[in-house]
Amino acid sequence: MSDHWAYVVAAYALAVVVLGAYWRRLVRKERELKALHTARADHNTARTDHTMRSRQPSIPAHPRSDPGKRSPLQ
């Protein structure tokens, strides 16, 4: 019987393509999940910064004077 190398190559090449495609799909999914995780972490950090900033006095450059030291006109 002749060797039919073309069939052998076709079978192995097909297996490489299918397994390679599946592996790439897993890697792509992993990358997407990592990107999503990073984006969420950045968003949470930004939101925390914003919240912290909103709790600070808005205009610290204008302190109130001490009431005991005020003159009657004040």
């Binding site: 019987m1 002749s2 060797d3 039919h4 190398w5 069939y7 052998v8 079978a11 192995y12 297996a15």
Partner: peptide, 15 residues
């Protein structure tokens, strides 16, 4: 190399 089928039998190591 398999005697009856020839080298096409090497697909067995995948199948």
């Amino acid at each position: 190399r398999e005697v009856t089928q020839g080298n096409v039998q090497r697909i067995m190591y995948l199948h």
